[in-house]
């Protein structure tokens, strides 16, 4: 690919004061290899269209303010090379730029992140220390390297909201906690100085919380800091078991997989809804069961047990026993 060429930026623009809906504006600009998408947008704003509105600050991948969707994927404009994007764009030499998903647009590429901030507040996304406010600063609250290690990756989060924008469930339910807020909660729960773990976890397992995640891994794939966000989601879910918070459909559902591996080896699908939802919750499942029954797609009530199921049970119990000892 040559080092200097004309590129078209198709930018989704929207000014709520005058526009009924968002529309694409095309900008043809001649750019040189090595330029980032943020620099290209700045060039357009400075030389082509002063009304183009986008948000940025550090220009170095630190502050997280310039996240937008580039060719359909949420990422930072300041760390994305135009030439790299040209490799993936569907139409030759055209780059599509859109605001983040799952937020209300304030103008063009700038979105209203207030709902995300409200969620960070709701789930107490900060360390709640043992030390009283008036005593803060008088004594050091040290964190040893080995204590920091489990939260090391999570502390890389810059709240850019790329994961928020890509999240399947946030798209379906705007009240859903969202990946980055779970990541923050996990990080605070694991912080040795924090004392709000119990209260935070109780909140996390309620409606719109951790159990609504559909394990699609879109957040993990989009994270600009390569943080294994799913490990944090799974970490908080694991913590609900550790804290004995098991009276939710999510926890009951998850526990079934352990019970069934231990009790026969294979998943007992037929009773899975009943065991997840309980007898009352099951009523809502009757139409589904009838529909599947009419097609002869009823799972066996007693699926085949693996012939070595006794050995499997012993194996699982051995692992459980050893893990407990370790704790």
């Amino acid at each position: 690919m040559e080092d200097r060429k004309q590129i078209t930026f198709n930018v989704l623009c929207f000014n709520p004061e005058v526009d009924e809906k968002a529309y694409f504006k095309s900008y043809d600009v001649v750019l040189e290899k090595g330029i980032t998408v943020l620099r290209a947008l700045n060039y357009i704003k400075d030389h082509v269209d002063q009304t183009l509105t986008h948000r940025f600050f550090c220009q170095a991948g630190i502050c997280g303010s310039c996240a937008i969707r580039i060719n359909g994927v949420s990422k930072l404009a300041c760390t994305t090379q135009v030439w790299d994007e040209l490799e993936t764009c569907k139409t030759k030499d055209q780059i599509i730029v859109e605001p983040l998903n799952n937020f209300k647009v304030i103008r063009d590429l700038v979105v209203d992140i207030d709902p995300m901030i409200a969620k960070l507040k709701k789930y107490k996304s900060w360390v709640v220390p043992m030390v009283k406010d008036e005593d803060l600063g008088k004594k050091e609250c040290d964190v040893k390297p080995e204590e920091f290690e489990p939260i090391n990756a999570a502390t890389d989060c810059i709240l850019c909201a790329s994961c928020y924008s890509e999240c399947t469930i946030t798209e379906a339910d705007r009240h859903y906690i969202s990946p980055l807020v779970i990541l923050r909660a996990y990080r605070m729960n694991m912080d040795t100085r924090d004392t709000a773990g119990e209260e935070r976890t109780r909140l996390l397992q309620e409606d719109h919380g951790i159990w609504d995640c559909t394990h699609c891994y879109r957040c993990v794939e989009a994270c600009v800091k390569n943080i294994p966000i799913m490990e944090a989601i799974q970490g908080v879910r694991h913590e609900t078991f550790e804290r004995g918070m098991t009276n939710t459909a999510g926890a009951r559902h998850a526990k079934i997989f352990l019970d069934d591996v231990k009790g026969g080896g294979r998943l007992k699908e037929a009773t899975l809804p009943l065991r997840t939802l309980g007898p009352i919750g099951m009523i809502g499942m009757i139409p589904f069961a009838l529909k599947m029954g009419a097609k002869g797609r009823v799972p066996p009530i007693f699926p085949h047990k693996v012939s070595t199921h006794r050995e499997v049970k012993t194996l699982v119990e051995q692992v459980e026993k050893e893990s407990k000892k370790k704790d």
Binding site: H215, Q234, G235, R237, H238, F241, H253, A254, K255, I256, F257, L258, D260, V261, G265, R266, L267, H304, V306, S307, T308, V312, L315, V316, V319, E320, E322, S323
Partner: peptide, 26 residues
């Protein structure tokens, strides 16, 4: 593989991480 057990359905990993890895290693 008639002797294989359930994979854990993307759930066992957080219910019991040690069991999850031993189960699929098996």
């Amino acid at each position: 593989m008639e002797e294989a057990t359930c994979c854990g359905g993307s759930n066992l990993e957080f219910v019991h991480p040690d069991v999850a890895v031993v189960n699929n290693a098996r």
